[in-house]
Computed example of a mutant assay.
Amino acid sequence: MGKVELMGHLDSTASFTFYYPTPDLFFVGDVNQMAKPALPARLVMQLASSIRL
């Protein structure tokens, strides 16, 4: 994936809040599960990388 700069927070309950400064976007959500703790980070990185600037 391409290099993406994000600022934000992952919570222990799989909720997340991230800011993507280049296109001025916020990613806020919850994947509602705790079995796969890396899922929110991978989801946000995939979403941010898919945005065409």
Score class of each variant (00 low, 15 high):
residue 17 T to L: 06
residue 40 P to C: 06
residue 16 F to S: 06
residue 18 F to N: 07
residue 45 M to H: 11
residue 8 G to D: 12
residue 26 F to L: 01
residue 20 Y to V: 05
residue 15 S to Y: 01
residue 52 R to T: 14
residue 28 V to Q: 14
residue 45 M to F: 10
residue 45 M to Y: 10
residue 44 V to H: 08
residue 31 V to N: 07
residue 12 S to G: 14
residue 41 A to V: 03
residue 8 G to N: 10
residue 19 Y to N: 11
residue 35 A to R: 02
residue 49 S to A: 15
residue 29 G to W: 06
residue 47 L to N: 04
residue 15 S to L: 00
residue 15 S to K: 08
residue 2 G to S: 14
residue 34 M to P: 00
residue 3 K to D: 15
residue 44 V to F: 06
residue 40 P to S: 05
residue 40 P to A: 04
residue 48 A to T: 08
residue 37 P to Q: 08
residue 5 E to M: 03
residue 9 H to C: 06
residue 6 L to F: 08
residue 3 K to R: 13
residue 15 S to V: 00
residue 41 A to R: 12
residue 24 D to W: 01
residue 23 P to F: 01
residue 30 D to Y: 02
residue 23 P to C: 01
residue 35 A to F: 03
residue 45 M to R: 12
residue 37 P to V: 08
residue 12 S to P: 10
residue 39 L to N: 04
residue 18 F to V: 06
residue 45 M to A: 13
residue 26 F to T: 03
residue 44 V to Q: 07
residue 13 T to D: 13
residue 28 V to L: 13
residue 4 V to L: 09
residue 8 G to A: 07
residue 42 R to S: 10
residue 49 S to F: 00
residue 52 R to A: 11
residue 38 A to I: 02
residue 31 V to M: 05
residue 1 M to C: 12
residue 11 D to Y: 12
residue 34 M to C: 02
residue 33 Q to H: 02
residue 4 V to D: 07
residue 35 A to L: 04
residue 25 L to F: 11
residue 8 G to H: 12
residue 52 R to Q: 14
residue 22 T to V: 11
residue 29 G to L: 03
residue 12 S to V: 11
residue 51 I to K: 11
residue 30 D to S: 15
residue 21 P to N: 05
residue 32 N to F: 01
residue 16 F to A: 08
residue 49 S to Y: 05
residue 48 A to Y: 05
residue 31 V to R: 02
residue 7 M to W: 09
residue 40 P to L: 04
residue 32 N to H: 07
residue 32 N to S: 01
residue 1 M to F: 13
residue 14 A to N: 15
residue 4 V to Y: 06
residue 27 F to R: 05
residue 5 E to G: 04
residue 50 S to C: 04
residue 9 H to P: 01
residue 25 L to T: 06
residue 18 F to S: 06
residue 7 M to P: 00
residue 39 L to K: 07
residue 23 P to D: 02
residue 52 R to L: 09
residue 41 A to E: 15
residue 4 V to Q: 14
residue 51 I to V: 15
residue 42 R to D: 15
residue 1 M to K: 09
residue 4 V to R: 13
residue 6 L to Y: 11
residue 17 T to W: 03
residue 19 Y to F: 15
residue 37 P to S: 10
residue 32 N to D: 10
residue 29 G to N: 06
residue 27 F to S: 08
